[in-house]
């Protein structure tokens, strides 16, 4: 029982990070039907930012907000440089563009920094545990859960209480109709990228606290997890993305604890296999949101 509780907290900690990344991907999918495989590059950029600031002598309390802002800004820049030009293009073109950006940013980091990973110190407290009754919980997990909830709360407030948020949801619901109602697509898309970047930034802070390294491919794993979570949730659905992240986090933790020793190295592979099977049988994800195409 106590073990189960620990695993649930561990899973929620992981899942929270995935949820933030997935939510960003779902927001962008909502406004321009783009599955952003370049979303992980925001985390790569964050990682290098954190590394550079560490070298400059900053501490985590200052680095964290800087990382969040950098991710938000990078997201807007990527939209401006690349995705702006393929708005409304066929799905194939958009998919390929996002993969291209993904590879390009990686290559640029290899070229200008190094192909090797750079280490930076992790905050001292992340492995501390907190004993409640017989259960020992990682402080880090609890912190992630807390901040995920706060971030989701803030996002919910933005989406439901601000003019921008309501336009964004309207656009996600029916982009053409929203435009006809006078919603400025330019601003919404740029705003969506900013929001999605900020969410990725918050996720990046925690991801980096745990990994403690920066490298050209630092964003690959979180990107894949985020895309998978968003897909599990049904892509267009924002709450689905959050749910997908949590499901993925829990699934991973349980897989790791119950797989035989010799197969633990294959955890990611097994997760992928499950995801592939999920898409074979439910291509729309767990929650179906996309209505039938109009003919």
């Amino acid at each position: 029982m106590t073990e189960l509780l620990q695993q649930v907290v561990d899973g929620l900690g992981r899942g929270g990070i995935y949820a933030l990344i997935a939510l960003g991907i779902a927001v962008i999918f909502g406004v321009m039907h783009l599955v952003n495989f370049a979303h992980g590059e925001l985390i790569t950029v964050s990682a290098y930012t954190a590394y550079a600031l560490f070298v400059a002598g900053w501490n985590w309390w200052l680095i964290a907000p800087a990382v969040v802002l950098t991710a938000g800004l990078t997201s807007v820049v990527i939209e401006f440089v690349a995705f702006r030009w393929v708005r409304g293009a066929p799905d194939f073109t958009m998919l390929m563009t996002s993969f291209g950006v993904h590879f390009l940013v990686q290559a640029a980091f290899v070229m200008y920094v190094s192909a090797n990973f750079r280490q930076f110190p992790r905050p001292g407290w992340i492995f501390e545990t907190w004993k409640v009754g017989g259960v020992s919980l990682e402080v880090f997990d609890l912190l992630v859960i807390l901040f995920t909830l706060l971030t989701l709360g803030a996002t919910y407030w933005v989406l439901h209480r601000t003019m921008f948020g309501m336009s964004l949801r309207a656009a996600a619901e029916d982009f053409d109709a929203a435009r006809l109602m006078g919603i400025r697509s330019d601003r919404i898309i740029r705003g969506a990228f900013a929001l999605s970047g900020l969410l990725a930034g918050v996720a990046a802070v925690f991801w980096l606290m745990r990994s403690g390294q920066a490298g050209p491919t630092a964003g690959l794993s979180p990107m894949l997890k985020g895309v998978l979570a968003a897909l599990i949730g049904g892509l267009g659905s924002l709450s689905g993305a959050v749910l997908g992240g949590v499901v993925l986090g829990l699934a991973e933790v349980f897989l790791i604890s119950y797989l035989p020793e010799s197969l633990v190295g294959l955890t990611d592979g097994i997760v992928f296999l499950f995801i592939a099977l999920l898409f074979v049988f439910r291509p729309q994800g767990l929650i179906t949101v996309r209505r039938a195409e109009r003919v």
Partner: peptide, 10 residues
């Protein structure tokens, strides 16, 4: 089908 995300992910 062309541009299908599920197929790409599989």
């Amino acid at each position: 089908r062309s541009g299908a995300v599920a197929a790409t992910v599989i």
